[in-house]
Amino acid sequence: MDKRVRNGKTTYLARWRDDAGRQRKKAFDRKVDADRYLKEIEADLLRGQYVDPTDRTTVIEYARVWAAGRVHRPTTARRVAGQIEKHIAGTSLGNRRLAAVLPSEVQAWAAGRAKVLSPTTLRNLVGLLRSIYAAAVLDRLVGRSPVVRVSLPAAHRERIVPLTVREVVLLVSAMPDRNRAMVVTQAGLGLRIGELLGLRRVDIDFDRQTVRVEFQIAPASKVRSEPKTRRSRRTVPLPQVVADALTNHLGKYPAAEDGTLFTTRFGAAYSHNYYGTVIFRTAVRRAGLPSTVTSHDLRHHYASVLLAQGESVVAVAERLGHENANLVLSTYGHLMPDSEARTRKAIDDAWSCAPDVPQDEGHNP
Rank of each mutant, 00 (worst) to 15 (best):
S221R: 02
Y270L: 04
R230Q: 08
E257N: 04
R231T: 11
V223P: 07
A268T: 07
Q240E: 14
F262Y: 05
S271K: 00
A268Y: 03
G276R: 01
L246H: 14
S271F: 00
R286A: 15
G251I: 14
E257D: 08
K228H: 09
E226I: 06
N273A: 11
P227Y: 07
F262E: 01
V284T: 10
A255H: 11
L246S: 13
I279M: 02
S232I: 07
T235A: 12
A287E: 11
S232N: 04
A256V: 07
R234M: 09
P227M: 07
L261A: 05
V278I: 13
L261P: 00
Y275A: 06
L246T: 15
S232F: 05
F266H: 10
T247V: 15
S221C: 06
Y275D: 03
T282F: 09
A245T: 08
V284I: 07
P227Q: 06
R224V: 12
G267P: 01
A268R: 04
S232Q: 05
P227A: 10
G251W: 14
A269H: 02
K252H: 13
K252Q: 13
Y275R: 00
T282H: 13
R224S: 09
K222I: 00
N248A: 15
E226W: 05
G276M: 02
R233H: 09
R233N: 12
V223F: 04
G251Q: 11
L238K: 02
G276W: 04
L246N: 11
T277D: 13
P227R: 05
T247W: 15
A243K: 06
S232A: 12
D244S: 14
R265H: 12
R285V: 14
K222A: 00
F280P: 01
A255S: 12
S271T: 06
L250D: 10
K228M: 04
A220H: 14
L261V: 05
P227I: 10
A287C: 11
R234E: 09
A287P: 02
T282Q: 12
N248G: 14
G259N: 05
A283M: 03
D244L: 14
R233Y: 03
R231D: 09
R281A: 14
H272K: 03
E226G: 12
A245V: 06
N273Y: 12
A268K: 07
R233F: 08
P254R: 00
Q240V: 15
V236Y: 06
F266S: 10
P237T: 12
T235Y: 00
R230I: 08
H249V: 04
K222C: 01
T263D: 01
R281C: 07
T264A: 00
A256H: 04
E257F: 06
R265Q: 13
R265M: 05
A255P: 11
A256I: 04
L246R: 06
T263Q: 01
V242M: 07
A256N: 09
G259F: 07
S225V: 14
V242E: 08
T282V: 08
G267H: 03
H272G: 03
R230N: 08
H249N: 01
G251K: 12
